[in-house]
Amino acid sequence: MDDRDLAVSRRGVLAAGAASVAVSQVPLSRAGAADSTAKPAQQAVRLSVNGKAHDLTLDTRTTLLDTLREHLQLTGTKKGCDHGQCGACTVLVNGQRINSCLSLAVMHQGDEVTTVEGLGTPDKLHPMQHAFVEHDAYQCGYCTPGQICSAVAVLDEIRKGVPSHVTSDLTGTMQPTNIEMRERMSGNICRCGAYSNIAEAMAQVAEG
């Protein structure tokens, strides 16, 4: 590296930080003391996924997302960023939605996980899946499983009276208004831009 990279400045630090995110900028001298040949730690974990129990022994670094996609071959849950920035990996854990990429599988001993495959099948769609088809609430389909899992959880959150940033009345009965749903869905990016249709699909399900 030339000395430009050694000059300490906020920008320089940012640049180095950004590079290290993509694993490309390790100094030539040994950076850490860790032995590169050490076997990765393995740990047993029992998960219930869509009602079926799985006993797995996993590299402890395995995310819940990769456990689903690579080990259980449940590829309905998508990897869009692997950083908790896009929402494509949203699943329900014990009824609550999470970004499965931000969670290690071994943290979920005994948990009940529901993925998009657990909500419905092509022959027997969940009402939310059906509403998405009816309203064309998707295009490429890659964010769709995450949108659907989030949408199901959002309506449940509203039913249970969990407040959001835009809830105006914290003590009254919470309503699934357009803005209330949109606020809560904002962690699920859809680059094809199906938002307007997703809001309509959700409204249809919310109205029953």
């Binding site: 640049a15 995110v21 960023c81 962690g187 699920n188 938002y195 307007s196």
Partner: peptide
């Protein structure tokens, strides 16, 4: 653009901002 290091700084989906649900009304 980082004009010194020559790259796009905001290279992920948190820092390269795209519209989300809250940004888009009925169309």
């Amino acid at each position: 653009v980082d004009k010194r290091f020559g790259y796009f700084v905001n290279h992920d989906l948190a820092s390269y901002e795209v519209p989300v649900h809250a940004d888009i009304p009925h169309q």
